[in-house]
Amino acid sequence: MNASTLLASGGFVSPGSHDFVFKPLFGNNILFTKPVFQAILAAILVAVFFLISSRKAAVVPSRTQFFGESVYSFVKKDLGEDIIGHEFMKFVPFLFSLFTFIIVNNIFGIVPFMQFPTMSRFGFPVALMIFTYVIYHYVGIRKHGLGKYLKDIAFVPGVPKWIYVILTPLEIATYFIIRPFTLAIRLFANMFAGHLLLLVFIMGGDYMLHNSMVLKIMSPLSFGFGIGLTFFEFFIECLQAYIFTLLTALYIAGAIADEH
């Protein structure tokens, strides 16, 4: 992370989970660290940008309005209408804020001077996952009633009775534990691994640059990989925001579908 300590210690300190721990920004208040600041900043950025882009809505759109509207219509059509079906409109605000919030937070991973994807701290994806979890079970229960909703989840039709002993715990575990957690872990692990990968190449290149002649010649290769992987990370960051929102929409669609 900083070259001076690297040089002082002599050996190469490989990046690890210690690079994801931040000191509190003000005093000893552990609630306010860099990731928290980034999350708040992302919320403000998203809100301000879409307020500006929609405030002076005109028939001939300005550039900001066009951009805002194309993001909105992408979420509304591709993630709402195509997946959830005719009741999609009441979920669009949630999906839209989820998508824009995650994508801004992820892109902070490659913005200069921030360079830390907020979602690589596990708490943030878990918080978003809890929103998704509560919403899709709530709409499912309200649509079908508690008994029928649980019966649809737990009992697959058309198998002998004794097999339910094995299958029902599996269904319950999948719907209530594994699926929400894989949702959070997928976002977290992609951001964590991506940030770690960038750290390895940039810090490795930095270390080689301050070392013997042979390593000095090799170091541009490492920096080149770092730059290439930064573009790759940009792609992954957009893709993971899309996938998180897509899976949220799919879970909601599955919860309010007429039969599973």
């Binding site: 195509d82 094995i166 599996l170 575990a173 999948t174 534990i177 594994i178």
Partner: peptide
């Protein structure tokens, strides 16, 4: 389609749940 992607992720979730639960 997007429905296929959902099925893929659900398949992974089922396999993981089976292994973790009964294992």
């Amino acid at each position: 389609s997007s429905k296929d992607e959902g099925a893929m992720f659900t398949i992974i979730a089922y396999l993981l749940a089976g292994l973790l639960l009964w294992g």
